[in-house]
Every structure is written in structure tokens, then in C-alpha cells.
Design a protein around this nucleic acid. Sequence first.
DNA 1: ACGACCATACCAACCGGTTGGTATGTTTGT
DNA 2: ACAAACATACCAACCGGTTGGTATGGTCGT
Lengths: 204, 204
Amino acid sequence: MKSSAKEKILDAALSVIRAKGYSATSVDDLCAAAGVTKGAFFHHFKSKEDLAVAAAQYWSDMTGKLFAAAPYHAHERPLDRVLGYVDFRKAILQRSLPEFTCLVGTMVQEAYDSNPAIRDACARSINGHAHTLEADIDAAINEFGIEPPWTAPSLALFTQSVLQGAFILAKAKNGASVAADCVDHLRRYIEMLFSQPQVKEYAP
Amino acid sequence: MKSSAKEKILDAALSVIRAKGYSATSVDDLCAAAGVTKGAFFHHFKSKEDLAVAAAQYWSDMTGKLFAAAPYHAHERPLDRVLGYVDFRKAILQRSLPEFTCLVGTMVQEAYDSNPAIRDACARSINGHAHTLEADIDAAINEFGIEPPWTAPSLALFTQSVLQGAFILAKAKNGASVAADCVDHLRRYIEMLFSQPQVKEYAP
DNA sequence: ACGACCATACCAACCGGTTGGTATGTTTGT
DNA sequence: ACAAACATACCAACCGGTTGGTATGGTCGT
């Protein structure tokens, strides 16, 4: 049997925690969703916190594969790859709410102050994903020959900020359309950054 | 006695829930932080859920007063008021992490799927706050005589998306500087929207 | 003025159910 | 045979919520 209990528990964690949040998800919930017993759970994870850290890593692995295999990498021009990433994120919003939201974005809100191990695991996941954008952004900067007052890592993190915030708005409004609007603004911002001379700081 | 038990519980809710999250915050936690007994709690709130809904409203009232009294409204030009709002948000980031983050943004992540009453209360709070920006944005559109492909409500919600996402990144990285960077990007975007002809959709 | 009446505000003790976690098996793969 | 992979049974602590009760202060008829 390849899909072992451990993997079933991790899969269950992704969906259940994204729907209910980390604290509200009990170990029993996870076991029921995974179809395993508590004994199996504590055989593979020494605590609920340990599961959360493993789930964050598992989430990174899964999404890493998803984005690595996405078609936007095929674009020749760096800016097209960056905008292709944004379009790809927008396309994912078609799925249902608990399916397109972010596991680590949800967990870190509950754990940042009380559980450093989970917080750091979430930070690694977000930073790692943002990092995959930096090379293309830097290449686009070179392609356009601009000398922007911002850096590639900073813009990469900004895209994540918009997406994480869009998820929150989508949850509040119980629909994805507001998130799609936010992604549109993000796309327009990136287009503008590469389509014209940088504006000077506006200070009245 | 002016500061009654009810108000002490609500004040405690704002800080404790922002630090620990909604589910991880027990009624006993709230009572201990507020210095009241459980009897007092359930006298004023018929359930923990009821407290959460009331806390979201209380949060709206508090932040509403804060932003209504903020100095950026004094600017003559509408765009200066919009940018002044952004700068004001950035200034608030100086405070400590649990102090500058958003109660309803935290709660809605845990409640959107399992607790519609809390979700709707959070949505009202976010929408209400975003709405306070719309008049200035519309006035800025008129001032500049532009006909943008986006609407004032959409841009107002986008600002909230950036801020909510910035809070998540700040929690993950355990520091406010990444949030400040995001707000800088947001400011640059708004400046660009009003400082040049709109770019056409970029489609390779 | 004054007790009868009553609503509000609050309290300490308690309840049944759930929690994360453990102790002790039993099954399975090699 | 033997360890890793699972299952069963169980526990102490904690959970949200209820209980029966007290203290306070306002309102009413008289």
C-alpha cells in the first residue's frame, strides 16, 4: 500500500485545516477525515503541533510541484512569465473557496504568537514560494533596462500579500469574485511597473 | 462604574483573539484577561459566537473612530486624502504585531466556513471600512478626469487586500518591515493610477 | 416616605462532552 | 522472528455553557 496512513493524514490536514482553521481542527477530525485511528496518528506525528509543521512542509511540496509544472514558465520573455504566474493564480480562483485558499496563510494567523515552530514552517513556505518569482522579476528588470526603486524580492512578496489578502476578502464575502478583482489590480500594477518611466515619490 | 464588565470583556477580546485566534481563545481566557467571572460573560453574551459577533462590531466602532479622527482627511486634494490614508496605515505599523493587525481579518479565516454569523459580521466590518475610501477615490477620478477600467469600490477593496495580506506576511516573518514594503508598493500603484494614461491590457 | 416588586449585573460551583495524548495490544511486511 | 504500522481503550485536563444564587438600584402604589 503506497498511500499510507501518514499521507492520508497529511491530505486530510490540508483540506480540513483550510476549512476550519488549525485550532478548531481536532486530532479526531483529522483521523476521521483520513479514515485512520488515533493510534496511527500519534505513531507518525508526535503531537498535533508536529503534524502542523509537517503539513506546512507537505503543502510546500504539493504547491511547489503544481507551480513548477504550470505552463507560464514556457513564455520566452521574463515579464510574460511573471504575468503568466499572476494569470495562473487567477485561474485557480475558479475552484471552491476551501480549495483555492492557502494552508499556511490560514495557520500562521493562529500560530504566530503562540507557536513559533508552526509560524516558522509557514514563513518558510511563503518565502520559498515567493522566491520562485524572483529570477523572472530580475530578468524582466534587465530586459526592460529599468532601475526601479523596489527589489525583486520585495515585489515577489507583494504579490503574495495581495493574494493572501484576496483570500481573506473572498472568505469574508463568501465568493471568489472580489479576489479576482484584486488579482486584476495586481496585474495592472506589474504591467505599469514595466511599461513606463518610474514616477517620482508623490509628496504634496 | 463606567467601564462595565461588558466593555472589559470586549476590550479583552480584541487583544486576546488577535494574539491567539478565535478558536484557541477560551471563554476562561477572556474572563481572566477582563478580570470578570464566567457568569458575567454569559450574562452579557449568550454564547462565545455571540461575543465574536459583538467584538467585530466593537472593532468596527473603535477603528471607525480612529480613522475618522485621523489627520489625512484635512488634505484639500482628493488624491492626497487617499494617499494620506495609505501613509496613515503605514504609520500604524510602528506598533507591536498584535496591536496593528486586524481582528476581523483574523477571525474570518477561522469562521468563514463554520460560522456564518461571525463571517458576516467580519464582512460588514471590512466592507464598511473600505467604503470610507470610496468617496475620496471617486473625487480623485473626477479631479484627474480619467476614465479608469476599475471602480472606486474595487480599488478600495484592493487596498484592504494588500493590508490584510501584509499582516499575514508580518506574522509569518515576525516583523512589520515586510508589511511596510507592501504598503509602499500599494502607494506606488495608486500614484501611478493617477499620474499617467492608463496602459492597455498587456496580452502577448 | 417607604416597603413591595422587579430587572439588571454579577458570581462561584458545577456539568456533560471533548480535547490532546498515552498505554497496550494486534497486524503486517520482510 | 522482529520491527514498523496500525488499532483499541482509556485518561486527566479543559471546553462551552448552566445552575442557583446575591447585590444593587430603580419604580411603583400607597
